[in-house]
């Protein structure tokens, strides 16, 4: 096993001074497996009370960072804090209010769902036992709680895994690929549950996933990781737009030349050019100025058949960031949108 982080030098020893408003904070976190560097100086900041997506292609290091944070494996360098407490120095205290599913949720298959929760409740402490029934109810497994886990579907195991997390009454949930095995209805329910946890209950949810759509629909902020490095992190909208706020429109008009001339003279427009879809127009101001651009064109005698805001997707940004890595070393592309 690799040597653990030297907690005495890596992190402040006084817990009171470290409650920084971040649920997870890592600095220079490095993990090596022999010659291979799985985590390469990860700096991650997860704000409290948010759903945070941790995106990356398979093998990017998503599960490794979760395992390192939770003390399942040691780090070679760097510092970590969970809920403001340095780990591994105060690991026990830090994890008391953390629920986690690492990789697929596993259980003793010969025990019932309720018994499996009892096992974890026993380890967490006497006060936890009272949370078993509410947790089962919350994930919709009360009726099947007496059945052995070996009879559960993958989706039910995922739900039971979430119930196991809830036993901690968690301030922070760490979920590794949580929608694996869920059907579309289950994914929708799961998404709603995560949003409720964040918005109504103030919990922080850290979701590791390679499903961009999932993260985009569920999370407030995200980090994109590849080859052991965090490439970008920040609010979803800013990530999708590549770091700056770009308001763009797609236009279909009857007179392209006149439209380009008119738009080129307008103070509302930063750039206008032809594209496969028609005219692509970048606005100088906020999205509401689109109506003024439309009025300007109409006044100039241009017929506007279509005016549509461009929606920047996280997928676009993800592919852009990760494919760029194929051409350049990761260090050249590392960029932090917002911490």
């Amino acid at each position: 096993m690799s040597s653990p982080v030297d907690a005495s030098t890596a992190t402040p020893a006084v817990s009171e001074q470290v409650d920084s408003g971040l649920a997870i904070e890592t600095t220079g976190l490095t993990k090596r497996f022999g010659a291979r560097t799985a985590l390469d100086g990860i700096d991650l900041r997860v704000p409290r009370g948010s759903a945070f997506g941790f995106l990356g292609p398979n093998g990017a290091g998503k599960t490794t960072i979760i395992r390192t944070l939770l003390g399942l494996t040691g780090a070679n360098a760097g510092t970590m804090k969970i809920l403001g407490r340095p780990v591994p120095l105060e690991r026990g205290q830090a994890l008391r209010r953390v629920g986690a599913i690492v990789e697929e949720p596993r259980f003793h298959p010969n025990l019932s769902g309720r018994e499996n929760l009892r096992l974890v409740a026993a380890v967490r402490g006497p006060e936890t036992r009272a949370r078993i029934e509410p947790a089962l109810a919350r994930v919709g497994l009360s009726d099947r709680a007496e059945n052995k886990v070996k009879s559960y579907s993958m989706g039910m195991r995922q739900r039971l895994g979430v119930a196991r997390c809830l036993l901690a009454d968690p301030l922070l949930l760490i979920l590794d690929e949580p929608t694996n095995g869920l059907d579309p209805g289950g994914i929708q329910e799961f998404r709603e549950m995560i949003r409720a946890m964040v918005e109504q209950e103030g919990r922080t949810v850290f979701i590791s996933s390679h499903l961009l759509d999932e993260v985009e629909k569920t999370c407030d902020a995200a980090a994109i990781v590849d080859r052991g490095k965090v490439i970008v992190q920040g609010p979803i909208a800013e990530l999708a737009q590549g770091g700056g706020v770009r308001n763009e429109l797609i236009l279909s008009v009857d007179d392209v030349e006149l439209a380009l001339t008119t738009l080129g003279a307008s103070e509302l427009v930063g750039d206008a050019r032809r594209s496969d879809e028609g005219l692509r127009v970048e606005l100088v101001g906020d999205p509401q100025t689109a109506s003024e651009v439309n009025a300007t064109l109409v006044r100039a005698g241009v017929g506007v058949m279509r005016l549509e805001p461009v929606r920047h997707s996280l997928e676009q940004r993800f592919l852009e960031v990760t494919s760029r890595l194929d051409a350049k070393p990761a260090t050249e592309t590392a960029k932090e949108v917002k911490t």
Partner: peptide, 22 residues
């Protein structure tokens, strides 16, 4: 070996309880 072979050892570790106690 029961916990490790069932794959639940890590779920017990992430409770924060000391491994020696486990």
């Amino acid at each position: 070996t029961g916990d490790a072979s069932a794959g639940v050892f890590r779920d017990l570790v992430v409770t924060g309880r000391s491994r020696l106690a486990l």
